[in-house]
Amino acid sequence: MLKLITSRLLIAIPSLIGVVIVTFLLTRVLPGDTAAYFAGPAATPQAIAEIKTKLGLDKPLIIQFGDYVGALAKGDLGTSLSTGQPVITEITNRLPASAELTLSGLILALVIAIPFGIAAAVKQGSWVDHSCRILTTAGVSLPVFFTGLLLVYLFYFRLGWAPAPLGRLDAFAMAPDTVTGFYLIDTLIAGDVETFRAALAQLVIPALTLAIFALAPIARMTRASMLAVLSSEFVRTARAAGLTPWKVIIVYAFRNAMLPVVTTLGMVFSFLLGANVLVEKVFAWPGIGSYAVEALITSDFAPVQGFVLAMAILYVLLNLMIDIAYGIIDPRARSEA
């Protein structure tokens, strides 16, 4: 297992280096003169030049890159100009918010999509199969910002079932002490049921928005993999042995069909992190996605670089976790690795 982890990490290093280089170059060709923006509305060219020097923007690109990598090695991601805070603290503060939202969306999607996928495979070709396909495809065909706005309109404005789309907690609720950074878990650790419910209420609609978007790939993969398993020898054998169809499907087929689904999760998660950016914007969610968008629009380099790097590392770790999970579900994969 350890060997697997090290080898996976080693493989990830070149792409991380690639990410650092690409991000650096991309942020430097962004239009908009950071120095002019922050020198204020009435800045003289001299004032702009001063700020340029202060920010080190007048040095040659290669030296700026060297400075950046040097700081990076010390764990310094720079300071955001638009919020005035060190990027590393902002990211560590905001990452749990994004992760909690994305994971909730993913879990919600799994809970809905897997039964859908199983049903579609078992009743292949029937109306269940077709309507399942149409529903999930419709979900992935909706732009997330549109879904989000419609849900807010319906559940908050029209029906009044959901709380105001104002981020993770209502203005009067106190955030729990940070243990994991996930409000749902932290409130339970603190034993504060009321805040737990408040946090959950805030989370439902944005998580649903994400889940609707993620249904299709999961349901589709579950269906395909169930179909393959159901037609395999051992399922036929189990059926022939007279086991109940329910037992065959859940115990034999489903367990084996999970493998490809787990592998897809990595892709779905990355897909959701992208969609997250727009969802956070609609729901005022204080995550890293909305942070990165704001930074990109103000040509604020440091947060954009920090965000992308954090995402890349997250992605590598996630894939590692999936490999490990794969190993646990399927002992063969472990020994082969």
Binding site: S15, L26, L30, V293, L296, V304, M311
Partner: peptide, 18 residues
């Protein structure tokens, strides 16, 4: 792999912005 390591939508934003 390098492209995949980016959150794709953010990469698209960055490219269009740049």
């Amino acid at each position: 792999d390098t492209i995949m390591a980016f959150p794709l939508f953010v990469l698209a934003m960055g490219i269009v912005a740049a």
